[in-house]
Measured scan of single mutants.
Amino acid sequence: MALNTPQITPTKKITVRAIGEELPRGDYQRCPQCDMLFSLPEINSHQSAYCPRCQAKIRDGRDWSLTRLAAMAFTMLLLMPFAWGEPLLHIWLLGIRIDANVMQGIWQMTKQGDAITGSMVFFCVIGAPLILVTSIAYLWFGNRLGMNLRPVLLMLERLKEWVMLDIYLVGIGVASIKVQDYAHIQAGVGLFSFVALVILTTVTLSHLNVEELWERFYPQRPATRRDEKLRVCLGCHFTGYPDQRGRCPRCHIPLRLRRRHSLQKCWAALLASIVLLLPANLLPISIIYLNGGRQEDTILSGIMSLASSNIAVAGIVFIASILVPFTKVIVMFTLLLSIHFKCQQGLRTRILLLRMVTWIGRWSMLDLFVISLTMSLINRDQILAFTMGPAAFYFGAAVILTILAVEWLDSRLLWDAHESGNARFDD
């Protein structure tokens, strides 16, 4: 018995066209964080690309023209004298008006014999932002004059995390709450300039795509075929072959399989920071003279006294001054041990922890910024005066060393310790 099946006739004509040209192939790229070699397709503007294995951002879609970056830099340069030299806060102490600005706080630190601690604050609040705007201006002028731009481009990517104007702005709020127990506070004209400078700096850093600047100024022929001998440069993120001198053909720094002496430098910085954190938390970090009496505060006791007036601000200072430094030390110690013992479990967790400490590390400088600003506000000789204690130097040095330890660690070593050939990683 035959089955009668109805015929289905399409209502619209289906047209099949042959592909007349070869589909576009992607360029081969190595991930600078996990060293995976993959094919990167062509990316349009405002599109980002991520590593298929570790999800690290390979290409950032946010990109401004150099002219727009230069305009932002010149605007920031105009704001800087007002943000640093004009009063941020006014207080009335014992019937006398006192003005506080950024430069005055750094000068008070240096004047009291601790120039190293003052230079830490100076670099993060004044030096690094000033280098940022002058570097962008150098790129703008240098591109037109045919100057060598490689050193500036190499420095810009590392400079971003040292620009800490946003953290200093939080420190202004913390210092205001600490001082309000002794005097009446009012915002100064410099505060508005400083807030504007923070906003412009944040926007500029978020749109400063150094890798795209490398592509514009020093374009290189990408690798179009897969080759395990391809290496990625950690300076400019170019994937290719080393030249005859073993250097990256684009930025001219040595092109090595792994960062040289990464573990040794990381261990040295980490152990030194552990040693410095002990006096930083045991010795007094601030000293207040009130009517001839002397009151010393460690980091913890200062947080407890701050909690009596504002528990939320005390929580912020606790996280930045105690929780973050010790968390960074514990995480980095764990990561280094996992590399030495070739741990194969929990790779995803370790990668996330490394990215976390990379982002939060700079916030530990908050305590030094609060001390710097408070020193310029309260300084009335023996009637009422505020000065920093010996722990300030140890704390600042420990924070900087932990930042350097994270920067010096080559994250690809975590993958080397893991089993080879993993296309995915999980716990």
Rank of each mutant, 00 (worst) to 15 (best):
L3M: 08
N4Y: 10
Q7H: 10
Q7C: 10
P10W: 10
P10C: 09
V16W: 12
P24W: 12
D27N: 13
Y28N: 13
Q29M: 12
R30G: 14
L37T: 13
N44S: 11
S45T: 12
Q47D: 14
P52Q: 06
R53H: 10
R53G: 12
W64H: 11
L66D: 15
L69T: 06
A70I: 15
M76Y: 04
G85W: 07
L88R: 01
H90M: 04
H90Y: 05
I91S: 01
I98Y: 05
V102G: 05
M103L: 06
G105L: 01
G105R: 00
W107R: 11
K111T: 06
K111Y: 09
T117W: 01
T117S: 05
S119G: 02
S119E: 04
F122L: 13
F122H: 13
V125G: 06
I136W: 12
W140L: 14
F141R: 01
G142K: 01
L145I: 10
M147K: 03
N148P: 10
L153D: 00
E157H: 15
E161Q: 15
W162K: 01
D166E: 15
D166K: 15
Y168H: 08
G171Q: 08
I172S: 12
I172G: 07
V174E: 00
S176E: 04
S176A: 08
I177K: 05
V179F: 01
Y182G: 06
A183M: 04
A183D: 01
I185N: 03
Q186T: 05
A187T: 14
G188H: 07
V195I: 12
A196M: 14
I199H: 04
T201M: 07
T202W: 15
L205G: 15
N209M: 12
W214R: 02
R216W: 10
P222S: 09
E228L: 10
R231E: 03
F238R: 04
T239N: 06
D243F: 04
D243P: 04
Q244H: 09
G246M: 09
R247T: 07
C248R: 00
P249Q: 07
H252A: 03
H252S: 02
P254E: 03
R256E: 09
S262D: 04
L263Y: 06
K265L: 02
L270N: 10
I274G: 11
V275I: 11
L277S: 12
A280W: 03
L282V: 07
L282C: 09
I287K: 08
I288K: 00
L290N: 05
G292D: 03
D297A: 12
S301T: 07
G302E: 00
G302I: 09
M304N: 09
M304K: 13
S305F: 08
S308M: 08
S308W: 11
V313C: 11
I316W: 13
F318H: 08
I319C: 15
I319D: 13
A320S: 06
A320P: 01
A320N: 02
I322L: 06
L323Q: 05
V329R: 02
I330A: 15
M332D: 04
T334A: 11
L337Q: 11
S338W: 13
S338Q: 14
I339S: 08
C343S: 13
Q344T: 12
Q345F: 13
G346K: 14
G346P: 14
R350H: 13
L354H: 10
I360P: 00
M365Q: 06
L366S: 09
D367R: 00
F369C: 03
I371S: 00
T374A: 07
T374N: 15
L377G: 02
D381F: 08
I383W: 15
L384F: 10
F386N: 00
T387C: 07
F393D: 03
F395L: 14
A397I: 05
A398I: 04
I400F: 05
I400Q: 06
I403F: 02
A405P: 03
V406N: 08
D410W: 00
L414P: 03
D426V: 12
